[in-house]
């Protein structure tokens, strides 16, 4: 018997969005990707833009985002998603185009593509998942790794002498005149995820108003890479990442 047949029609208060597929996610339990995927899927459904949305997935854990969001997808080479999105949006201006990139993808190997897409003011939504680590390759240091943080390639902790400083890409991007909207959120509580959804919606809406690029960073956890339980990872994120990457709307024009 189908679940919907059990629940009386008037009693159904929540349903999984149809923009999410039924595929079992490969993400580790506690990973932020799943929550953000669902937030995007819900926004797409609420806005009724499933038929007009093209996603560009990165290289990294979320390379398989196309398995879970039931829309058309392009899978980019490492760091190049903003270049793909640039061409896609310019060739099909009537579509909603968004990129989904991790911190290694966007802030390291794809830094040039990200900054120049923003500087040109491409009418796209860029989503930046920042968990301070390379997840898929086994927990190596990223540009966003915090000072002192231990990773597979900074086993005794990141140092300024060896690796320079933690990169705040969002702060670099915010002053660019091509960017109309910059916000930094998390997805660790229901309230935080609701705020994130509002930011994503705004980003999608902006992309149809020729206002320029919308850039939404999500401070995230990688509890496997950080070698913590999901609960401890969320606590560590709040204590250590939020002070370095403060949440909030940075720019809204």
């Amino acid at each position: 018997m189908d679940v919907k047949e059990i629940i009386a029609k008037g009693d159904l208060v929540y349903e999984k969005t149809k923009v999410l597929t039924d595929k079992e996610m490969h993400y580790c339990p506690g990973c932020t990707h799943g929550t953000v995927h669902k937030a995007i899927a819900e926004v797409i459904e609420e806005m009724g833009i499933q038929e007009k949305t093209i996603g560009i997935s990165p290289v990294g854990c979320s390379v398989f985002a196309y398995e879970y969001l039931h829309i058309d997808w392009q899978q980019a080479a490492h760091g190049r998603a903003p270049a793909l999105a640039t061409a896609t949006k310019r060739l099909m201006p009537e579509k909603y185009v968004f990129t989904y990139q991790g911190d290694g993808d966007i802030a390291s190997i794809g830094c040039a593509e990200a900054i120049h897409a923003c500087n040109r003011g491409e009418n796209i939504l860029m989503i930046f998942i920042n968990n301070g680590i390379y997840g898929m390759t086994g927990g190596q240091m990223a540009p966003t790794t915090l000072d002192g943080m231990k990773t597979a390639t900074s086993p005794t902790g990141r140092t300024v002498e060896q690796n320079g400083y933690t990169l705040d890409l969002t702060k670099m991007i915010a002053p660019l005149p091509g960017v109309c909207y910059v916000a930094r959120h998390s997805a660790d509580t229901a309230a935080a995820t609701r705020k994130l959804k509002r930011a994503l919606k705004k980003g999608f809406e902006n992309s149809m108003k020729n206002k320029g690029t919308s850039f939404v960073e999500v401070i995230s956890t990688c509890n496997s890479g950080w070698k913590m339980s999901p609960v401890a990872a969320n606590e560590w994120m709040r204590e250590n990442m939020f002070p370095v990457f403060p949440l909030g709307t940075i720019k809204d024009e």
Binding site: Q74, A76, R80, A83, A85, L91, E113, H116
Partner: peptide, 18 residues
């Protein structure tokens, strides 16, 4: 005009996907 040859070919990739 792209910011690099790398970006240019990846714009081609995006356009070709369409």
């Amino acid at each position: 005009q792209a910011e690099s040859e790398v970006a240019a070919i990846n714009m081609v990739y995006g356009g070709a996907c369409c």
